[in-house]
Nucleic acid binder design. Sequence first.
DNA 1: AGAATAGTGTCTGTCAGACAGTATCGC
DNA 2: GCGATACTGTCTGACAGACACTATTCT
Lengths: 239, 239
Amino acid sequence: MHVPKMLYPLVVADVALFSIGTDGLKVLLVKRSHEPAQGLWSLPGGILQPEVDNSLQATARRLLSQKIGVEVPYLSEVCSFSGPDRDPRGWSIGMLYCALLPRDQVHAVVKDSVDEVDWVRADGHGLELAFDHALQLEAALQALRDKVECHALPLHLMPAKFTLSELQRCCEAILGRALDKSVFRRRLKNSRDLEPLDEKEPSHAAQRPSTLYRARDSFCFDPPAKLGTRPRQGATTVA
Amino acid sequence: MHVPKMLYPLVVADVALFSIGTDGLKVLLVKRSHEPAQGLWSLPGGILQPEVDNSLQATARRLLSQKIGVEVPYLSEVCSFSGPDRDPRGWSIGMLYCALLPRDQVHAVVKDSVDEVDWVRADGHGLELAFDHALQLEAALQALRDKVECHALPLHLMPAKFTLSELQRCCEAILGRALDKSVFRRRLKNSRDLEPLDEKEPSHAAQRPSTLYRARDSFCFDPPAKLGTRPRQGATTVA
DNA sequence: AGAATAGTGTCTGTCAGACAGTATCGC
DNA sequence: GCGATACTGTCTGACAGACACTATTCT
């Protein structure tokens, strides 16, 4: 193990955990119960523990598990934030992760920790966030939007079975704009990521029941050099 | 400043510095003169110095400056590599950066350091690299290819003035496949990244002289949410 | 029948791929 | 004229955007 012979940076992993609520895209924030930044909202995160974690990504997963008791189906690195001033404790590196939690597990987060946790609007609206977490949240949200804008399907936000309309509403919540139903469905028809089930959504209203779909096993939100699909020239991402 | 109260990870920045040679895309490697991994080739890199560096990116720039005496016009974060086993000195974090050096500055690297440095084929062909640098090089090259595949113009690899044919050869070297001249030029005509000059390349051969272009000031290789352009369905990246 | 949502068909514009053609230089 | 490279024109197919249309359920 490496033995410090000089001052060392604080290494932290922070997670922007997104999910879908009835009123759009949500991100999980925790209210800090200790200094520094006590009382402010922040992204869930914590310090790397080399004796415990096998990677920085493992740090992120451990923190999600410890702090809010969830195992996420998707977690990926966004970018790093580093410097002498971003944390009052000194020179620090903050690795930002973007994680997705299925819509039907939004209430799985345990709130018995000393920290108060809550789902808030994904853009963090008027909240004052600790450290540079407002910047980080913006970066994570942009990374998520970029992917969906490039037609990656955020299936990790969906339950195991879902309708195309639900998936469309999910994409619209992420992008912050309406999508054309016909265009959306045409794309999904040609996609190899979805599989229709021989099942219909039980209709509770006076309406035609919709087909249920599920993600194919081969689906990957970070396409392994998956080609095709991009935003068009005139596309705009509006909040 | 943060005071260590436990074992701390080694924090390193490594840079995949690419440029264009007469025979294609090149990456700069250094032969390690010290342990660990003495005698093996590796990406230029080194340890974060919190007293000196204002960010991890600053670490990368400082190392390029100190080790090989170049200031690069483009340097961006790719992803991190971390874990207890990737460096024999112990738990470590390696932040990978991708940098571009203009074609006409390939010989600006100073070789007076104790390290032996050399430009090699960008894929690292048959070289055995130190640590996980083969993985890192692959990741950096893929990141570069992905961008160019999505029609970002690698203008930071070009001299201040260049012809469209030269730029096309540059893109082909990165992608590892031939591009259609007509398609390429049509795209550039509609691009806001390039500006034609009222100047012709002095022709040293029996051929029509070509128009010189330069990058517009607004050009950015990492498009700030720049839309449009993506690989098409049938596109393939072949080595 | 009517309301509501599911799902389809079709027209149009944009752009990539392919490839043949023209232009301009030195010899 | 010829060779070489710069540059253009045009046809086609894939796909996004827009939007009108049909289908199937419950009340």
